[in-house]
Design a protein around this nucleic acid. Structure first.
Lengths: 224, 224
DNA sequence: CAATTGCCGTACCGTACGTTACGGTTCGGC
DNA sequence: GCCGAACCGTAACGTACGGTACGGCAATTG
């Protein structure tokens, strides 16, 4: 009960702090420019952003407060574009479970090997030691933790359907995470050229699902 | 006839390019200072290095060429300190195999969660997009790839002893890598506070070895 | 039409940092 | 005891960049 009462529908003058506000179309264009610059050349400068987005630096500071605010808004903007792909909640049999696991693994592999994700993770990691940094936390919350929260319901549904056996959903998820991602992300982050093709991603996702079911599948010796 | 003919045995004046030369004691002290600064505050400045190592900037430039040369020499210096821990080549039975796998996993977990490794990886990742950068390649070669080359002989020995079954040693190794590391490294790189304790590392290593044997163990249903 | 608002383009300031230059000191060899 | 090489400490230079200020323009408001 302290918030802006008649903010009109123009636009939020500054989307700092909580990052709760939704950016306007113009602001989204600025954030997309930041993303493009990140993909091209690492940490973008304020001048480069202003040039690329055809806006003045003064406007950047008015909207985002300072450079950190701009970066944080960019990370959240990208995160808001990625959410997708829950599992089909109906009819969970062994095949549907396997398909959903494959879909999760493939989706995750596509995300972590995308240019935007790599650029964002590089910058968040590079700033992780600097004081008062939130980027790493934001990236973790929207990447690793978000997919965990979306996958665990599937795992628990699989357990209730008698298809999976595990004690701790978090532990089971972490194993799935390791089987799916393996060394892909760290290699790409370090500049290794071996970007997986769509074919690689599909077969890796299938292998990850198969191995996960071999470890956590209940009863049936379907795995092999 | 351009080189200094009587260089005496003092010390290599510049260890650039191939990084083949061994640093002198004094140079090692400088590189240790760089490592300490990296752990404390991320990317070190040349002035900070000179101050910490009690040497002049002129000397830094004479020895290492430029800032990139200093960073590359530091990465290689740290890498040269890590090599350790092959497996016991004699008497490979099921228990010895499991023990060796556990030892590899525990060693790897200790490395990737150490302050030095984290600092080095952060810097290599941060510079991965910059032109003419070798740090990422050096880190990969001495981390991920080095452990792979040391573990694969164990896996193949296990296969010849009839204890393991796999087609491609690289594929098997990557699975082991994923089971052991899971999300630990990326979480720590992004600033997540959850550093595993020695107890965590031991139990995680045991779990990774058990799961790997469940997936790749030959014949015997020893796993579980 | 005049005043206000929002924003672009550009110039500017202060600082941090990579790199170079220089005077002074130590030390091994003659 | 002298010479030169290696090295330390520090100052200086050029540049890049975060952040600020200002003039001008277009659209909106009254």
């Amino acid at each position: 009960m302290n918030q802006q009462t008649t903010l009109a529908r123009r636009e939020p003058p500054a989307l700092r702090e909580g990052g709760l506000k939704e950016p306007t179309d113009r602001q989204q264009a600025v954030l997309d420019a930041v993303l493009a610059l990140m993909v091209e050349g690492g940490e973008p400068t304020m001048s480069a952003v202003a040039r690329r987005a055809s806006c003045s630096k003064e406007t950047l500071y008015k909207w985002f407060g300072d450079r950190d605010g701009l970066l944080a808004a960019t990370v959240q903007w990208q995160a808001s574009k990625v959410r997708a792909g829950n599992y089909d909640r109906t009819r969970l049999d062994a095949n549907a479970l396997r398909d959903s696991l494959e879909a999760f693994a493939a989706n995750w592999l596509r995300v972590i090997s995308s240019d935007t994700s790599l650029a964002l993770n590089r910058i968040a990691i590079g700033n992780a030691t600097k004081a008062g940094d939130h980027l790493g936390g934001i990236v973790l919350a929207n990447g690793r933790f978000a997919i965990g929260e979306r996958l665990k319901p599937l795992l628990e549904a699989g357990r209730e359907a008698g298809l999976l056996a595990f004690d701790d959903a978090e532990e089971a998820f972490r194993t799935f995470f390791g089987l799916a991602g393996r060394d892909v992300q760290i290699r790409l982050l370090l500049g290794d050229a071996a970007r997986p093709s769509e074919t690689d991603i599909r077969s890796d996702a299938a292998r990850a699902a198969r191995q996960f079911l071999a470890l956590y599948g209940a009863g049936k010796p379907s795995t092999r």
